[in-house]
Design a protein around this nucleic acid. Structure first.
Lengths: 110, 110
DNA sequence: CGGAACGGCAACCAAATGGTTGCCGTTCTT
DNA sequence: AAGAACGGCAACCATTTGGTTGCCGTTCCG
């Protein structure tokens, strides 16, 4: 709940937010572009509304969702940027690995 | 430490393993393809050898590194598969989002 | 053989996490 | 105006996490 507004938080925070099946499924539901209220999102889970609320705040702190209050309800919407950032990070790791392999191959081939 | 040997664990476990700066930097060091001993990996951190060991086991449980004991030391090596899997998961989420945007655009354009 | 490097194991600890319940304020609907 | 939906806030709880220290078994090197 540290309010990191516009910026994309560091990768670890994003990955940590993704590191929970409940949050992962919330996010995958929201990635269809529809903003949903907490009540709606808690409807088909075994969890309490409060539990869902907490998970949503974790996602929000990671920048993965945004909340807009409309009337009496809080609608949460998917935010694609941090996902892209996380993907970029994994790409970098993979790239480093691939380079290492390429160098190794070049070496053994003389 | 649940020994999930050959298989790639579910995304949440992988993401959770990535959700820590220490682990992230261990992994990025290892992604250069060199296997390293625990002593080596603990050398330039402020943490204890034991702390590093624990982090390495978390990474191992996520399938992100593999351990091979050679002589008196345990060498840890980067494993690319779970990274690719995680990347694939993020791709799927992004794809769903992109599709949603495309459908929306098609709708407003009539 | 004897010491030093490398690590595994266990106990322990504080803080964070994931979850609950209860209560209270708003906002909508009738 | 009354009641129901929606949610925020706080307290509380058990478990997990991230870290420590101490000790003991191997393995290497002189």
């Amino acid at each position: 709940m540290t309010e990191t507004v516009g910026t994309i938080p560091d990768p670890a925070v994003v990955f940590a937010a993704l590191g929970d099946t409940t949050r992962l499924s919330l996010l995958s539901r929201l990635s269809d572009g529809h903003a949903r209220s907490i009540a709606t999102l808690s409807a088909d889970t075994t969890l309490t509304r409060q539990a869902v609320t907490k998970h949503l705040h974790v996602l929000q702190d990671a920048g993965l969702v945004a909340c807009v209050r409309v009337g009496r309800e809080s609608r949460f919407a998917f935010q694609p940027e941090p996902v892209a950032a996380a993907r970029g990070y994994l790409d970098a790791v993979s790239a480093q690995w691939d380079d290492a392999l390429a160098r190794l191959r070049a070496f053994v081939e003389g």
